[in-house]
Every structure is written in structure tokens, then in C-alpha cells.
Nucleic acid binder design. Structure first.
Ligand SMILES: [Mn+2]
Ligand SMILES: [Mn+2]
Ligand SMILES: [Zn+2]
Ligand SMILES: [Zn+2]
Lengths: 145, 145
DNA sequence: TCAATTATTTAGAACGGTTCTAAGGTGAAA
DNA sequence: TTTCACCTTAGAACCGTTCTAAATAATTGA
């Protein structure tokens, strides 16, 4: 139960979520989960989340940011998106969906999964199982203001 | 003109290709181009190509491998494929196509572009231009034999 | 309540793929 | 052949990420 905050927007995270995932609700995990899940869906890098935590006055090391992002991913609260070899993005939207990637800005924007149809996919080879179909639309240029 | 070899398979590369691209046909570039383009299409990493060159008795530094892969990409002889944050793949198939990615093996396999239809894509924002639509089918498990 | 146990956090070192630097080598033009 | 811009290279640097091991915090259960 235990609402984390009674004041800030849509309540999409509770301490129970962590317990059910087998993760102790530490100060760091609770704070980061609030940043990540109390609001609209987002795509973050480790360094960006670290900077955001600092700015919010949350004392947490970069190592813990990495640990937490990976643990949240393991338990299905986040997913990784690979669009750039230089950094890893983590996505709070775990529904089936796809992405625009704005190469000049390093920015991801969701494309709802049901707005795209991918047809004609070959079957996967014997002995293997398909885990996901990912569509990335790479975009160049700057969006207007 | 100048065929590179009269003996080894389909001739898909000539020194003229380099010259037309504004690249001097050096010993290293010619050798690497032969490895890359004289044969079926492939997906290579820098380190894998370096190992292959060594094994073939081609003396070339890793720095030159990176330089060459990037130069070939700039002039459109290769394209990059991003499927794994840990390493960069270069693809000799520059036609519009998509990929299976075998996560357990780190292996890419082509899906012909015309065998997949992606429909329902939203328009890109004003001020930007779509550069490519990439479909990656992630696959787990080992292929038989 | 409060040790005992176990999980978590952390600073800093290490890692690994990639890029950079600057010095020597090479291809092409004339 | 000379000249010069281009190219190659060893090794250092870079940088996002992972590892290590010691300190700290959450949980358990007497
Ligand atoms: Mn959500
Ligand atoms: Mn080809
Ligand atoms: Zn997303
Ligand atoms: Zn390919």
C-alpha cells in the first residue's frame, strides 16, 4: 500500500512493487522509482538519471544508478532500448511499442505498438525463440523548437 | 579496371571503387575490401575483421581497421547496424533490409527488405527527415548445429 | 527489542571497445 | 625524382560501464 507521495501526479509506483519484485525498498530505490515511474513514460540513460537525482537532492552513486536500472530491467519494470552504440537507454514503457530515434538530439519518442503492423516476417530457425520485434525509425534534423 | 583477383569467386570489388570514392587504393584498403566484398554479404565487427586479416597474413593495425570501416561507411560501401551496446557491426549489404539478431551468439542474419512490410508509421515531426526504418527481430537460443 | 544475518550502497579501480595523437610511410601528380 | 597531401600506426587517451571489497542499511527471529 503505502503511497509514496500524496501530492505529485499519477500514482504509478508503490513500495509494494519493489517488495513483490524481491527488491528491498531502500531509500535509493524508492527515490529513483519515483523519478522514473511517477509521471509520464520516459527514456533515460544512466548518466541522465544520475544528474536528475543530484538535481533533486537525492544522494545516490552512479554505481547504484547502474545497479538499480539493471535490477528494474531484470524484474520487468524497465526495458533496454539499443539505438546508439555509445550509451544505453532504459524505457519506463514496457508495453509492446516502437521508437523514433532523433539522431541529432539523442532522443527517443514512442510509437504505439498497435499503430504499426509488421507483416511478412520469416520464421525463426529451429531451436530458437523470437523474443521481440523492434522497429526503430531513425530521424535526422532538429524538431521545430 | 584492374581486377583484384582472377581466381576467387564473384568479382564484386575493384580498385576503381576506391578511387571513385575518393579513397587512395592502399595495400590495406585493397586487402580489407577483398575480405569484405569478394564473396557473400556479411556482418563484421572491427575486432573480428582484424583477426581475419591477421589470419590471412595481411599486416594491418586495428586503428586502420577502424579508419577503413568508417571511411567505407561514409562513402556508402558499408552500413552500421546497432543491435548491441558493446560492439559495432558493419554490414556489407547496403540494400534496404532488416535483421535477425541471435543474442546468444552475437550473430546477425539478413531479412530481405521486400519480405517485410511495415505499415502505419506516423509521419516524422516538422523539420526532420526520416533516414531509415530498421526492424530487428531478437532471437534467443542456439540454432541447431 | 536488538543482535545476527543478509542485502545494498559506494568510491574508486578496472575494463574494453573505440578514438585520438603525432610521427613515419606511401601514392599520385608533375 | 621530387614534392606533398594522404595514409598508417603504436600507443595513449577516452568514456560508458562493470567490478571490487569495505561500510552501511534492511530484515529476521529470538
Ligand atoms: Mn509505466
Ligand atoms: Mn555488396
Ligand atoms: Zn519507448
Ligand atoms: Zn545485413
Amino acid at each position: 500500500m503505502a503511497k509514496i507521495s500524496a501530492l505529485e501526479g499519477p500514482m504509478s509506483f508503490s513500495v509494494e512493487t519493489l517488495r513483490e519484485a524481491g527488491l528491498r525498498p531502500t531509500r535509493q530505490r524508492i527515490s529513483l522509482a519515483k523519478l522514473l515511474f511517477d509521471g509520464v513514460d520516459r527514456h533515460v540513460t544512466a548518466e541522465a538519471l544520475h544528474a536528475e537525482a543530484q538535481a533533486a537532492g537525492i544522494r545516490v552513486s552512479l554505481a547504484t544508478i547502474y545497479n538499480t536500472l539493471h535490477q528494474f530491467t531484470e524484474v520487468g519494470l524497465l526495458r533496454q532500448v539499443v539505438v546508439d552504440g555509445a550509451r544505453t537507454y532504459f524505457d519506463t514503457n514496457i508495453d509492446d511499442h516502437h521508437h523514433f530515434y532523433f539522431e541529432d538530439e539523442g532522443d527517443l519518442v514512442d510509437i504505439p505498438g498497435d499503430s504499426i503492423v509488421v507483416s511478412g516476417l520469416p520464421n525463426v530457425p529451429a531451436g530458437t525463440t523470437q523474443s521481440r520485434v523492434e522497429v526503430v525509425v531513425r530521424v535526422k534534423g532538429r524538431r521545430r523548437s
